[in-house]
Amino acid sequence: MNPNVVPRYELLDHHGNSVTEQHFTGRYQLVFFGFTHCRVVCPTALTKLSTVLDDLGPLADRIQPLYVSVDPDRDTPEVMRAFLEADHPRFLGLTGGTEATEAARTAFRVFATRKADPDDPDGYAVPHTAVTYLLDTDATYLAHFPDVLEATEIADRIRELCGTSAT
């Protein structure tokens, strides 16, 4: 139990279903926050995490990868679904209204702020922290992985935390 992170969310998945953190109990949750218009951080992180899941083999079947939007104005369930199914099909997208996504972000202590960005077609970006969270099977915080960790380090940590040693 980490008193600093109490992961709670009440969002829509990219199929339009209402979900909370309790929806996935019985499985581990691998949670990353971002936005589909992100040009560098999210593609890099999602690719890395997909590699991690590939590396985990059968253990990955016990893990639900989640990509939570910090840009709900643009990231509708439909947008999230199209983005993820095209490039990061392991992930389920979560989004919602401004209040709901902010509540989720606050619960996970994720930083995100809307900034003007002349290179973006809509004129803004949402810089955010690139931390990946691992929730236990009871939807409590188990660990987090900062962006500086390599895919192999994350995979090793997940095996260790989920009770499956590397072969």
Binding site: N2, N4, V5, R109, V110, F111, A112, T113, P127, H128, T129, V131
Partner: peptide, 12 residues
């Protein structure tokens, strides 16, 4: 840990 999470929450 408390300081660390405050740092994370504020985007470093």
């Amino acid at each position: 840990e408390r300081i660390y999470w405050n740092m994370v929450e504020n985007g470093y």
